[in-house]
Computed example of a mutant assay.
Amino acid sequence: MAGIPKNALVLVGNGRKALLLRNEGDNQFPNLKAEAVFEDQNPPTHLQGTDRPGHFIKGIVSGQRGAVEPTNWHELEEYRFTRRIARAAEEIVRSGRTTAFVIAAPPRTLAQLRATLATDVKRHIIAEIPKDLTRLPVGEIERHIVEALASPTR
């Protein structure tokens, strides 16, 4: 495939921001337009939960105490945000408004999306790009995606 198909849905995101873009151009000359923008508010950990991990007694006889791994509230919120984005993309794909789906996200977010997206929606994925492109202008996003689709190592 030489480019982004017309009407393809392009998800560009990370754990805090996501853009759902639609290609209104054609394979050779993409023209990505924003369909939806999502931004997550992820406040500091001390505003989300306790800063100190809990403790437990390992054995009544030994009296040893152990610590519980602290909850990483940022990772938990990023996972919830990723699920929310996946549901929005699934709705668009299932409504028939697109037949091709491209995802560009950092490797961890990409893995979370793979685990979250439904099987029927995964069938529409034509490319996965393991890069964070969220801070780039749309023209640069287009260029990166076209290059990735044209690359023989894809």
Rank of each mutant, 00 (worst) to 15 (best):
A2L: 13
I4Q: 09
P5I: 02
K6N: 10
K6R: 13
L9T: 12
G13Y: 06
N14Y: 03
G15T: 02
K17H: 14
A18Q: 06
E24M: 09
D26A: 07
N27V: 14
F29C: 12
P30G: 09
L32Y: 05
A36L: 12
V37G: 04
D40H: 15
P44W: 07
P44G: 09
G49C: 09
T50D: 08
T50C: 00
G54L: 06
G54W: 01
H55S: 14
I57M: 13
G59R: 04
G63Y: 01
G66I: 00
A67Y: 00
V68C: 00
V68E: 14
E69T: 05
E69C: 04
R80D: 09
R84F: 01
E90L: 02
E91F: 05
V93F: 05
T98R: 08
A100F: 13
A104W: 11
A105S: 15
P106I: 05
P106A: 15
P107D: 05
L110G: 10
Q112F: 13
A115N: 14
T116K: 06
A127V: 03
P130W: 06
L136R: 12
I141H: 05
H144T: 04
H144C: 08
H144V: 03
V146N: 00
E147M: 04
T153R: 11
T153M: 07
